[in-house]
Amino acid sequence: MKRTILVYLLRVFVASLFAMPVYWVFVIATSYHGAAYQLPPVWRPLFHWKPLVFVWTHTPWARYVFNSVFITATTIVFVVVTSAFAGYALAEIKFPGNTLYFYAMLGVMMLPQQALLVPQYVLMYHLHLLNSYAGLIIPFGASTSGIFLFRQFFLKLPVSYREVARIEGVSTLTYLRRVAIPLARPAVATTVLLTFISSWNQFQWPLIMTNSPSLQPIELALSHYMQAYQSNWRDLTSAALIALSPILIVFAFTQRHIVSAVAGGDVGQKE
């Protein structure tokens, strides 16, 4: 039994080790001015919300949050629609090139993103997509993992579901909208969550593709803020808290789903 207790203690230690930095963002953001310089460090949050309000009102965070929300929300809609469409075509429709497209879309994952940034920038320049919401959204409007997820899900739907629709004269789009996608709720949820996380956390792409402050999503704004307010830890962590909170809240409610989605678990299971 000694061993069991040891294992549990180790687990507690490891868990707090990993959670500590995130916790500290909160502690320092809501602590008194200068708490960051205390030795030994401050451990307990004081729940002073004033610095957060100050940061929110004295810099255009509302704008940045709006940008992030808008970009993320639009990207999610794009990804869900394109993934459901392509996933359905790959799973249920026979057409010349079906297999080819399956591998081509998986191949996108093999392309090293860092090596593509230069040509992508040139492309965006010529498409006049630099400094635009469209340029921050459209390239991420299709997702390999989303398509794969929907394909796996649709493969599990009975073939007769679609055959009934064909006999009844229901168009493919209506069938998708009324039957296939509503039944694929778990796939939709997973795609929404994963897209939310990756889109909200976007940093490098907006860094390169925009230079107008009014378009900045929150992560990019935060990095500029970081350079401007180098050691004002309370304001910095307050701003970081604004960027972190939506992720933390969503993660708190859906962590089991996210973890199993990432681990390739059985989220594709139909109800």
Partner: peptide
């Protein structure tokens, strides 16, 4: 299929569960 005006009953019934 839909122009043939047939009514088909499947082995698994194929009722939409939602």
């Amino acid at each position: 299929p839909y122009l043939r005006n047939v009514g088909m009953v499947f082995q698994n019934y194929a009722l939409y569960p939602h």
